[in-house]
Amino acid sequence: MSIYIARSPAVSARSLDGEMIIMSTKDSKLFTLNEVATEIWQAADGRTPLSRIVQDVVCAKFEAEPEAAYADAEDLCRRLAEHGILVISDQPLESAR
């Protein structure tokens, strides 16, 4: 079963020529995401399952193998969630942004 991901409201974010820069308003931690992670971040609307995001965005744009790509993407999302900049649920979420 796929997870759902939404961007946390406690961040500031801007795309700098394709590289997403994110600042946590809670602890001032600064993050930069590479192109693949940026695509996942931008698609994190809380309603689209991660499996669909991986299929439609990651695999389609970066020619990745679906199973491995999903595992990597879920690992990434859990790491970002640990830092409070992404919200994860097994149910659809209301994206704050």
């Binding site: 602890d27 600064l30 930069t32 992670a37 990597d72 970002l80």
Partner: peptide, 11 residues
Amino acid sequence: MADVVSIATAG
């Protein structure tokens, strides 16, 4: 997807 994210802490 190694090195997808750089994280730096204040200070």
